[in-house]
Design a protein around this nucleic acid. Structure first.
Lengths: 211, 211, 211, 211
DNA sequence: TATGAATGAGGTTTCATTCAT
DNA sequence: GATGAATGAAACCTCATTCAT
């Protein structure tokens, strides 16, 4: 009853096994685990236990580097900036076609859940919400501006067309097919969008290729 | 602190006659609570405790009528089918304009969170996923078919346009602005879509209306 | 990867075994567990797990009735107001002797730790601090007033004696022996205090007991 | 956000020369940190992390010098022995008055929490308990013996008075006011004790010193 | 020697779910 | 049929402690 004391903590923690989290490679492993789980099970179910287990770290280790789950998620996503290809193909249609394809190639099945997880988590975490805007809206808008500017210089945009919506349009369609219709987007969809919507909208079924 | 729970029920003496859940009105109260919470806090945080509390029922009562939280959510959403106005205005553009506006009017701020909750919950519950398809895709497709059929009869659709995408397009743009860009959609957006995208796509800034 | 879902929560919780916590007897069992643990291991180490285990309840059950550990502890202590015997023995010395003995009988080995736990917990919880004042100071002051008033009426208090300190004095000595010197207080200490301090202080080595 | 930790150490170029813990000055910094934290947050919440942070050391360094948290705390307290003034004033009452005042001056607001922390920690660590007896009881008893011996020589102690309790008495009253009644002790209390209790106990309100 | 880094073992609290009335 | 009450299973986060450099 009395003489208990001095039990201390038991086990034998302490060994800094493996590569430390300060190592960028190692950190990336954690981020990969986070993103994978986020995509698989969503924000709420992406527990720190699961992350730790998949990253082969301990929860305490994670909490040493990131003050909270939200911060960890934020960092994990930040790291994963997919580069949008903005090459100049000579025509607005092909610019967009390439952009979409490069976007889709980065938008794996994994990322599909990720997008939802992001929307979900944003409702609870303001920091996450901020990041989402930067991660989803920004690249889109930047790509938009670049591609659109070139198209304007080429005189490809017919008058009366809302230019902002014009560029959002293909992404919106892809997102809808992905999120709402549960489709796996592919080249086929891209071609349908470019040829079946953007083409007619820009006036010519096939951009005039002067010879 | 303690004695809450009990609901006032008229001034009549006698035992607290509670309306049973078999009563459709009562059931609707529960559904309203579920939807409100879903919209406010998302699927995960929409706990049975919260639902019970807001619906002034007990959790056990809820579980007597619905076998699980998922089923309750599914039923709650099923009940809330917003009617999409599909009036024939004489032109494709105005048909869509009306359709969008009627859709938006049903897409309250509440429902915005609801859409995310739906996407979120769908990842865990196949039943919810099925319902989502019915709740989001179906009305869309049905409206699409109706409006599109009329437009085809009128010969409004230029050749080369992907008809399916054509109808999805406005919804996709609205959804994108709502979900991703965090905007509150309004008439203004609808007009931009109809006039700045659909119009040019259909060929004429304003469909020629010969006397 | 996809087809996971529907795992639900597993086990088979739900059975309302045993007597419910609304039952005062049952609640007392919980309080007893709390107090025992508090005395044995102090506030911090008195974990909810331990309480639940000793009270043969589940943590969730405890949290249903009490919003936090602090509240549970507060309630557990509040319930355990030891009654201080304030019988009129005819002399101040014997009044105090009886009072001290009745206090000590309530101040079991258990309560000794409890006092420390109370002091300890008070630093973190304002509610607990309030309770401490009521549990430790109040009984003391009330006993003080009663016994002192009688002594004053009997004309037992010599002039020049600080009456407040006079009554606090025996309690302070007991507390010191208990808390600081780690002694188990008993009748012996009480007699030493009454005869070796109070007696000389009151002037007469033995109160005159006229036949 | 990341690069904190490192302490400024003069402006000199070269490697960060940290003072080792073998240095007594450095060790004292650690002790100060420990005591401050102990007083501020109690034994349990006085975490090694906090100590390390406040002492600008690393936990591993601390563990290199002290085998456990308890030992560190013990050592930190040992170092902080307040000197009790035991000057001979010529009378028992004034000897005690001076002793109490010198004790109180060392019993800062900080130490008040320290006392509780000590009691708290003692329940878990026998070593701490031993030290506490030495830190609190010893100085008390030594001062007691000295002052009491002088009083006995002067013939100030009336027969029938329990001499041990007589000397404990003022400390007990002070402790009670400090710990239980949450008062900040001051000269006023000391005077009340000396004049309102000790005086009468020793026989005369002011030792009659007939010319 | 000093430290950055890692870790097992809990700690408090919450949630979907189920008996017994 | 409605409800009060109970519960197993996590979830997030913290702490004393120990390697490896």
């Amino acid at each position: 009853m009395a003489g208990d004391g001095a039990v201390a903590h038991g086990g034998r923690p302490g060994r800094p096994r493996k590569i430390p989290l300060s190592n960028p490679e190692r950190r990336r492993e954690v981020f990969d685990a986070v993103r994978a789980l986020l995509a698989e099970v969503g924000y709420e179910r992406c527990t720190m236990d699961l992350v730790a287990q998949r990253a082969r770290a301990s929860k305490a280790t994670l909490y040493q580097r990131w003050p909270s789950k939200a911060q960890l998620v934020v960092d994990a996503l930040q790291e994963h900036q997919p580069a949008l290809a903005g090459a100049d193909t000579g025509s607005f249609r092909d610019d967009l076609r390439h952009l979409l394809i490069s976007w889709l190639s980065g938008l794996t099945e994994e990322d599909r859940g990720l997008v939802i997880a992001l929307l979900e988590g944003s409702r609870r975490d303001a920091e996450l919400a901020r990041l989402r805007r930067e991660r989803l809206s920004r690249p889109l808008q930047q790509a938009a501006e670049t591609v659109l500017a070139r198209a304007q210089q080429r005189g490809e945009i017919p008058p009366g067309v809302d230019e902002e919506l014009l560029v959002e349009l293909p992404f919106a369609l892809v997102l809808m097919h992905v999120l709402v219709l549960d489709e796996e987007p592919g080249r086929e969809l891209v071609d349908r969008i470019v040829d079946g919507v953007l083409g007619p909208l820009l006036g010519a079924p096939e951009p005039p290729r002067p010879g």
